[in-house]
Simulated assay, not measured.
Amino acid sequence: MKVQVERLKEVSIEILKGLHLPEKEAGLVAECLIRAEMRGIDTHGVRFLKLLSDRVSRQMICIPTPLKVIREEGATALLDGGNGIGQVAAHKAMKISIQKARDYGIGITLVRNTNHIGILAYYTQMAAEEGMVGVVMCNSAPSMAPWGGVDPFFGTNPLSIAIPCNSKGPIILDMSSSVVARGKIRKAQRMKEPIPLGWALDESGTPTTDPVAALKGTLLPIGGPKGYGLALMIDILAGVLPGSQYGPNVKTFHEPLGPTGIGVFTMAIHIERFMPLVQFKTLIHSYSEMIKNSRKAKGVSRIYLPGEIEREKEEKSLLEGVELNDSVIDELNKLLEQVKSPVRLNSFQRK
């Protein structure tokens, strides 16, 4: 069923406030989760609320987020997320990076000791909307072995880069360093569906289509050794450099094993330090059209830019609502009941 975007956001905020997040933090987290749902990335959407609730009940996360500036000098800053809400820490880091890029041409802010931050595109788009290039990386819990290995060591360690453009919106790359994000394996497990061959190996290192075996084994890096190298470098820049956890020391947010220790790297580049923004946007628009109008392979009717499919889904969701299955709606209503809210996501509120 489809739920209106604003209604889903209201429900999410109600749950988050019931978990004792301050109004500002609740609004920010809800916006990030709903944006993921709108863009078709439901693995990073409102299901996060149940995971957060579990951590709150076990006192495994600090609310409100005790964010601290550890070091700040020139174009750089280092924050400690205080084992609080990851979205709050990442949002603050990118805001600092954007301001430093205005002052110095480039801004780099790292975060240590935080948690799951949601879709990275949310933060890189912040920079793009200010006429800057945005770059965000973070590490995550072990799910991918070094190339040639079988034991999970790195996370899916995602990377996002956003580029301002004259067209409908920025070009946004948001990708994991594995062939597929671990969330898609979990979704296949929930739906009791097989996964494509080439996504993962089981515990013995044998290719598998069984999501349960895949979660016990290891995901495959994108491009083989290249994805392995990318995951390693992201782990160093987002984990080692800020003094956060890294490699197998990072804990998953999906199980109550303790603070995750996730690290985040944010960077903003002020385009006008290199050329006028209008000129840059015009060039990127022209460049994009060249790509989209290039000769297509047999059976292909359209060439997409990175993030274009997600942007179109977001626009459609804004008009038609967000698609949620009954189990997610039931879970949201259980959370509303748990936080003693009178609000319910009922059938008449669906679109």
Rank of each mutant, 00 (worst) to 15 (best):
V3P: 00
R7Y: 01
R7Q: 11
V11L: 09
I13W: 00
E14T: 15
E14Q: 13
G27W: 03
G27V: 06
L28A: 11
V29F: 11
C32R: 10
L52A: 08
L52W: 07
D54G: 12
R55I: 08
R55H: 15
R58T: 07
Q59F: 06
I61D: 03
C62M: 09
I63H: 03
P64W: 03
E72D: 06
A75G: 07
T76N: 07
V88E: 02
H91L: 04
I96T: 11
Q99R: 15
R102E: 12
G105H: 11
V111H: 13
I117A: 14
A121P: 07
Y123L: 03
A127D: 07
A128H: 13
A128F: 08
E130L: 00
V135Q: 04
V135A: 07
V136N: 06
C138P: 05
S143K: 12
A145G: 03
P146Q: 11
P146A: 06
G149P: 06
P152A: 04
P158K: 11
S160D: 05
I163G: 02
C165V: 03
K168H: 09
I172Y: 03
S176F: 09
V179I: 11
V180A: 13
R186V: 10
R186E: 12
A188Q: 02
K192E: 15
P196L: 07
G198C: 00
W199K: 13
A200S: 14
A200G: 00
S204V: 04
S204C: 04
G205H: 02
G205F: 00
P211R: 01
K216V: 04
T218L: 00
T218V: 01
L219Y: 03
G223D: 05
G223K: 02
M233R: 02
I234M: 00
A238R: 10
G239H: 12
G243P: 10
Q245R: 15
N249L: 09
V250E: 08
E255I: 05
E255N: 09
P256S: 03
T260C: 15
G261L: 10
V264A: 03
A268M: 02
I271N: 02
I271R: 00
I271P: 08
V278S: 14
Q279K: 14
Q279S: 13
F280S: 10
T282A: 14
S286L: 10
Y287S: 10
E289R: 15
I291P: 05
N293L: 14
K296G: 01
K296V: 00
R302D: 11
I303L: 14
I303H: 09
I303T: 12
P306W: 02
P306C: 10
I309Y: 11
E312M: 10
K316R: 12
K316W: 13
D326C: 08
V328L: 09
V328Y: 01
D330R: 15
D330K: 08
L336F: 07
L336A: 06
K340L: 10
S347F: 11
